[in-house]
């Protein structure tokens, strides 16, 4: 899922300082599961904003609402009137949701309430870790199901580098070395010989490097 992190109140407060009536719009999917911008977090942010603005003697017209997804028109369109009734929106969805809102409501300022951080999973309660960089050319078949693009600090194709020590990455001693994980996993699978081949230079044109990515599925078009 998409993992996000709430922005500091100070930053959000600053963004909406000049607006009277503000909608805090939560998103009920990824950011709800990672406790950054779901219904509960949107409510919390709205009340924090109200309190902070009250102390400054400013308008406390902060309303909150949450929709299932801010990345699909079918969930965005029904709140047209609600959005029309406010001066600005703080979206606690990921960057996709913020942009979905901005695209739909052309004349309404939409501000991000979270930092969209990575594609990952909660590995244990309270710990979210990156797993995928959406490079567009999956090589997990070659690396034992562990992604070096996302999980190696240098996205090495032929690791581990000389900075792998005691299973950890030199960049951060708390981070497992992705290539040590790959080594251990392939070893368990009896496929260590996979590591003997030189993995060629990666084609990054399918990644962000190739420009805005788009998929057209004729079979799904109306």
């Amino acid at each position: 899922m998409i993992i996000a992190q709430r922005k500091p109140l100070e930053e959000i407060k600053e963004m909406v300082a000049s607006y009277e009536k503000v909608l805090v719009l939560g998103c009920g999917t990824c950011v709800a599961v990672c406790f950054a911008g779901g219904e509960k977090e949107a409510k919390l942010l709205a009340s924090e904003l109200r309190m902070a603005r009250q102390m400054e003697g400013k308008s406390t017209q902060i309303i909150e609402h949450t929709i299932q997804r801010q990345c699909e028109w079918e969930f965005i369109d029904p709140i047209k009137e609600l959005v029309a009734s406010v001066d600005a929106v703080v979206s606690t969805a990921c960057g996709i949701g913020v942009q979905g809102m901005a695209e739909r409501f052309e004349d309404k300022p939409i501000f991000p309430g979270v930092n969209t951080t990575f594609l990952g999973m909660p590995v244990q309660p309270g710990e979210f870790v990156e797993r995928c960089q959406a490079c567009g050319d999956c090589i997990l078949d070659l690396t034992g199901g562990i992604c070096p693009v996302a999980r190696c600090a240098k996205s090495l194709m032929n690791g581990p580098c000389g900075g792998s020590q005691n299973g950890k990455c030199e960049v951060n001693p708390e981070t497992p070395c992705a290539w040590q994980l790959i080594y251990d996993r392939l070893s368990k699978l009896g496929q260590l010989e996979r590591l003997l081949d030189v993995m060629p230079a990666k084609n990054w044109s399918t990644s962000r490097d190739g420009g805005l990515r788009k998929i057209i599925r004729e079979d799904l078009k109306l």
Partner: peptide
Amino acid sequence: AANPFADPFEFRPYRLGK
């Protein structure tokens, strides 16, 4: 370059081979 002392030690000669 090669780091004979990095981990996993047993893979280092193979990585040099690569």
